Simulated assay, not measured.
Amino acid sequence: MQFYALKSTVLKVLCSRINLAPICKRNMACSRYEYVKSYELDDRILPNVWIVIRIDGKKFHKFSNAHKFEKPNDVNALNLMNAAGIAVMKEFRDIVLAYGQSDEYSFVFRKDTTAYKRRASKLLTYVTSLFSSSYVMSWPQWMDRQLSYAPCFDGRIVLYPTDENLRDYLSWRQADVHVNNLYNTAFWKLVLQSGLTNQQAEERLRGTFSADKNEMLFQEFGINYNSLPPMFRKGTILLRKRVVQSEGDDQEKGSQAIVPMHDDLIREQFWREHTEILSKYVPGKYVSPSVVPILLKMQLSEESQLVKATMS
């Protein structure tokens, strides 16, 4: 007993002389309080399901009015959303497709992703916060007015077990674009060109069908709805591709970039042309047209500058 008492005394003296006492106390505190970690829930997502994270602008009607967005569609504001979507895709290589329209964006993670150990809270907060901060950081590049207050986006995670479920989800979002844009186009033409009040325009459109709105736009404003820019009518699809100059070029020599497209997601042809989305994911080939979309051009320019810097 005397031996152990002496040993304990010696240890205390040594600790005090080499300043180990604070360390001992910290370790004891950690072990005492770390039980609170047991309250964290295990929120790992089920394996082998499509993970879709959709973000939506919070009170964006007020935000767009405060920043004087062009009605019914502001090209720069839409490209600002697309730029933020590209920033998220660059960070998460496991996103195989992103789809954006108006003030929302959907990000599709491949089924076998292991990002953040498939923890729902981690994935959701990272994507939402990165999109929000990228939106703010990219604002000066696209908008000619100052940001008067910070935008806010909320987010949700939805899981789809089959390829068909995923395709139906994306078809639903694109159908939503058509319905909303057709209404908004007709509404703002009545307000801005015909001089109707908002209430009068709503009453004029109440109970009308798509055919009625199309007919009104053509007869009263000379607008063929199908000739409007496809980004307004179909939204924007972001896909990771190898960009080449011509069809005969070797895909492996192309520059990898995230390509914005405005295609029809609902038709079978889209999925036949981009088979990599649902199969083993390897970026497909994209033949660059003579007129390169500005968002793609910016990425290719960034890659070119990076290569030059590396060579020098």
Rank of each mutant, 00 (worst) to 15 (best):
residue 246 S to G: 09
residue 278 L to P: 02
residue 37 K to V: 05
residue 112 D to S: 04
residue 179 V to H: 02
residue 120 A to V: 05
residue 305 Q to N: 10
residue 275 T to R: 14
residue 242 R to C: 04
residue 78 L to G: 00
residue 145 R to V: 06
residue 49 V to Y: 10
residue 85 G to H: 01
residue 272 R to T: 13
residue 270 F to Q: 01
residue 237 I to A: 00
residue 46 L to Y: 03
residue 111 K to F: 07
residue 143 M to E: 05
residue 171 S to A: 08
residue 119 R to N: 01
residue 190 L to T: 06
residue 244 V to G: 07
residue 112 D to K: 07
residue 273 E to M: 02
residue 258 I to C: 07
residue 199 Q to R: 14
residue 42 D to T: 08
residue 11 L to M: 09
residue 261 M to G: 03
residue 116 Y to E: 09
residue 110 R to T: 09
residue 174 Q to Y: 09
residue 108 V to R: 00
residue 276 E to T: 07
residue 15 C to V: 03
residue 235 G to H: 02
residue 264 D to V: 03
residue 14 L to Y: 13
residue 137 M to A: 15
residue 105 Y to V: 06
residue 276 E to S: 14
residue 136 V to E: 01
residue 150 A to L: 13
residue 285 K to G: 01
residue 58 K to N: 10
residue 145 R to T: 12
residue 165 N to Q: 13
residue 303 E to N: 11
residue 90 K to M: 11
residue 28 M to H: 14
residue 149 Y to Q: 09
residue 103 D to G: 11
residue 115 A to R: 08
residue 68 K to G: 00
residue 181 N to T: 12
residue 54 R to M: 00
residue 275 T to S: 15
residue 144 D to C: 04
residue 32 R to H: 04
residue 195 G to D: 02
residue 271 W to F: 01
residue 280 K to W: 08
residue 8 S to V: 15
residue 178 H to S: 08
residue 301 S to I: 14
residue 233 R to V: 04
residue 158 V to E: 15
residue 221 F to G: 01
residue 104 E to H: 08
residue 258 I to Y: 08
residue 242 R to P: 02
residue 48 N to E: 06
residue 270 F to M: 03
residue 42 D to S: 12
residue 101 Q to W: 08
residue 53 I to L: 04
residue 162 T to K: 03
residue 69 F to D: 03
residue 218 F to W: 02
residue 253 K to Q: 15
residue 6 L to G: 10
residue 266 I to N: 11
residue 47 P to L: 03
residue 12 K to F: 12
residue 248 G to V: 15
residue 278 L to F: 09
residue 272 R to F: 11
residue 173 R to M: 02
residue 151 P to Q: 02
residue 12 K to P: 08
residue 12 K to M: 12
residue 197 T to E: 13
residue 94 D to V: 03
residue 17 R to Q: 10
residue 206 R to D: 10
residue 140 P to S: 07
residue 158 V to T: 14
residue 214 N to M: 06
residue 225 Y to A: 13
residue 18 I to H: 11
residue 42 D to K: 09
residue 233 R to M: 06
residue 188 W to G: 04
residue 90 K to N: 15
residue 199 Q to L: 13
residue 189 K to R: 14
residue 7 K to C: 13
residue 204 R to K: 10
residue 212 D to S: 12
residue 251 Q to K: 14
residue 94 D to Q: 04
residue 66 A to Q: 06
residue 299 Q to C: 10
residue 177 V to Y: 08
residue 126 Y to C: 11
residue 136 V to N: 03
residue 37 K to T: 14
residue 243 V to D: 02
residue 35 Y to E: 10
residue 31 S to D: 14
residue 67 H to A: 03
residue 311 M to E: 15
residue 208 T to N: 06
residue 111 K to C: 05
residue 162 T to I: 00
residue 204 R to D: 04
residue 272 R to G: 07
residue 95 I to N: 08
residue 188 W to Q: 05
residue 130 L to E: 12
residue 229 P to K: 00
residue 274 H to Q: 05
residue 239 L to V: 03
residue 181 N to P: 09
residue 120 A to K: 15
